[in-house]
């Protein structure tokens, strides 16, 4: 557990940089964590994915299936992996302040 300062505000994150209290998310969190995912600048396309993840999560309290992310953003899977090279379930969720994906099996 550690604390990071993003845009002047402090956030608790776990060892992989996932937010502990996802209700505290602000767009500054995404901007601040982007570097750790190998993303220099967040483009509109990045935001489209992040915003959809947030929206879905706030409604259902779970991350959407990847199929839905493609459908709703209109991006093919390849494009999503170009935007977030560790994947929609990992990097994109981290930036959107969603919980860490589950398990290893």
């Amino acid at each position: 557990m550690s604390v990071v300062t993003l845009a002047g505000k402090q956030f608790e994150v776990d060892e992989d940089g996932f937010m502990q209290d996802t209700t505290q998310w602000t767009p500054d969190v995404a901007t601040g964590l982007a570097k750790s995912e190998g993303i220099e600048v967040l483009t509109d396309d990045h935001w489209k994915v992040i915003n959809y993840l947030r929206e879905y999560y706030q409604k259902f309290n779970v991350a959407p299936p990847i199929r839905m992310v493609c459908k709703q953003t209109g991006f093919p899977l390849k494009r999503i992996y170009e935007l977030f090279s560790t994947g929609p379930a990992k990097g994109a969720c981290k930036l959107a302040g969603l919980p860490k994906p589950t398990g290893c099996i």
Binding site: D16, Y81, G91, P101
Partner: peptide
Amino acid sequence: GGYVSLPGVAAGVLV
């Protein structure tokens, strides 16, 4: 166990 961030590698690494 589970997530480890390695940009460019979407599957194959675990912690």
